Every structure is written in C-alpha cells, then in structure tokens.
Amino acid sequence: MTVVAADLAERFRTDGYAFPVDALTPAEADRAVKDCRMYLQTVSAVGGALARYAAFPKIHLVSMWADRIVHHPAIVDAVESLLGPELLVWSTNLFIRPAHSGSSLAWHQDAVYLGLDGFQQHAVRVWVALTDTTVANGTMRYARGSHLQGTSPHRFSSSNLEDIMRGEEIAVEIDEAIAVDVVLKAGQCSMHHLAMAHCSGPNHTGNGRFNLAIDYITPQVVPTAGEDSALLVRGESTGAFLPEARPVSDFDGAALQQFYAAAARRQKRIDETILNRGTTQNQDRT
C-alpha cells in the first residue's frame, strides 16, 4: 500500500486539506477526460433522469471510467491513510468549468448539504484533476483551518441572479489571507474535510477544466434520516448503507436500474436535509 506522507496526513488534520497527492498517470488522466466527454454526450442524448444526474451523485455506478478512478489504488491507498481500511464511496461529482466561463462558486461547506452523521472524523472528499487546475482556470480555494470551526450557517449574499447562481455562501467572514489555491497537475488530487470552506473562480483560459470529486466514508458514518446506499471499495462492511455493485460495462441494464434507484434515494435525502436545515435556520432567526 502506498501511504500518504506523514506531513500530508498531519496537514489534513490541522489545515483541513492535503495536496498534491499523485494519483492517475498523465495517460490515465487524458483517457479519463476523453471518456468523460463521451459519457456526457451519451447521457445528453438519452436525456431523462440519466441526464439530470449526469454530474451527481452516482457517476461511478454507470460509467467504467469513473469506476476505475474510484477504485484507483493510489487514491484508495491515500484515503486509507487518512480514514482507515474500511472504505465506501458515497458519491461522485463532476465539476467542469468550460473555457472562458464566468461561472464561480461562493465560499461554502459541503457538509451542510449532505445529511451525514460522523463525517467529522470518518469522511473525506477527493478532488481529482483530470486536467491541470490553475488560478487562471478557476481552481478551488481553501480557507485553511476552517473545518475546525464546524459547520456554519449559509445564505445567499443577495437576491440578484449572479449571486444566486454562485450558490449559497457561508454566513461568516472568510479571511482572504488564509485562502490557498488548489493548483494541481492532471492526474493529481487534493483531499479535503467536508467542513472545509472553499470556493472557486471563473475560467479565463481557452481550455475546459475537468475535475471528479469522490466522497469516501467509513462504516462509522450514518445517514441523518432515510435510506441511503454506498459502494464498498475496501474492507467488508457497508454499515448503515445499502450495498451497491460495480458496473460490468458502460450503462449495462443492471447498472442503470441501480443508478436510477440510488440517485432518486439520494436526491430525496438531500432535499429533506436542505428543507430541515432551512427550517432550523428560520427558527434560529425568530
């Protein structure tokens, strides 16, 4: 097993992130981008729920390129160094910033949307660079150490369309002096705590930025409410999660059935999590 360097593991605990971690080879990353483009063309042509959930949350259940990445030994070994030998993939998320895109994401925390208990010590998001990620193409920025404060309230910064499109923003002031740009070469990855405050900027370059985010958890994590499922990638137990199976080929029949059920199950839980969070915040303001 390839173990993450001790200084990276320590940085994850203290800073809330660890990067760069070498994962895919340049050839593997290049192949993944090509396969990803083909995948997006296919799901767009099919439409329906497959297109709706093309970028989140279960890409690895229907596409062999994503399945290969979530099982990549260098990535799973790195995660094991942080979380231990019992590992599940809870979700995959595709983040693409097209060439010359003005889109951006406000400072936020992933944990507030996920509806998971136990994530504080037993979960990590791995952000895999399928292309180079740079300041110019809108890479992520971390607020160093922000995970130590736990989750914070979120709100839209204003009612104008641009701010709404940037997403909910953490309702505390982020000190730009502690912000760190996540600069990676294609094939490298970054690992961050689910309570890490982060944002991303516009892409000013002529090339698209492709990243696959993978949420790994251990069986100690449990859904806050309702059924959920996850894919065992190392170890023996799925804990409170219904077990998922790997695809045997792209979009095979059994994989599609599983994908539709798992995506609908997850969407229901996330919708309920956001609704309950909003209710709690409204009560806090009264």
Rank of each mutant, 00 (worst) to 15 (best):
T286G: 14
H193N: 15
L82E: 11
P85Y: 12
I75N: 00
P202S: 15
N276T: 10
L116N: 04
V248P: 05
S157P: 05
D250R: 11
D175S: 11
Y260L: 14
H122D: 14
G239M: 06
S146N: 04
M38L: 15
G226L: 02
A240M: 04
E86L: 15
A245Y: 12
R285F: 12
R265H: 04
H147W: 02
Y216V: 08
A263W: 11
W127G: 01
K185G: 13
H198I: 03
Q188F: 00
D215T: 15
K58E: 08
V46N: 05
A6K: 10
Q121M: 09
D252V: 12
A225Q: 15
G208N: 15
V182I: 11
F241R: 06
H71S: 04
N93F: 12
V89T: 02
A106V: 10
A136T: 07
G187I: 01
M64F: 02
G145I: 01
G167T: 11
Q121T: 10
A29I: 01
T133K: 04
I170T: 13
F210G: 02
E176A: 07
I217H: 03
D110E: 13
L87T: 05
A123C: 07
P20V: 04
A262N: 09
I217M: 04
T224D: 08
H192L: 02
W127V: 02
A129Q: 02
T134P: 00
H147Y: 01
A6F: 06
L83T: 07
P57Y: 13
I214W: 03
Y113C: 09
R166F: 11
M196F: 05
L88Q: 02
H204M: 14
Y216T: 10
H192E: 03
Q267V: 07
V76H: 00
T218Q: 11
V182L: 03
G187P: 00
A123E: 06
A213K: 03
Y113A: 13
M38W: 11
L8K: 09
D250M: 10
A262I: 06
V43M: 10
Y216P: 09
P73V: 14
R285W: 10
Q149S: 13
H154W: 08
E227R: 13
V79T: 08
L130T: 01
L130R: 01
S249Y: 07
D228Y: 02
G253T: 15
L105H: 07
V112R: 11
F56C: 05
L82S: 13
E28P: 02
V222Y: 07
N276W: 07
G84M: 14
Q220H: 14
V135M: 01
T286P: 09
V4H: 07
F210V: 00
V76S: 00
H60W: 10
S81R: 10
T286S: 15
H204R: 15
M64Q: 13
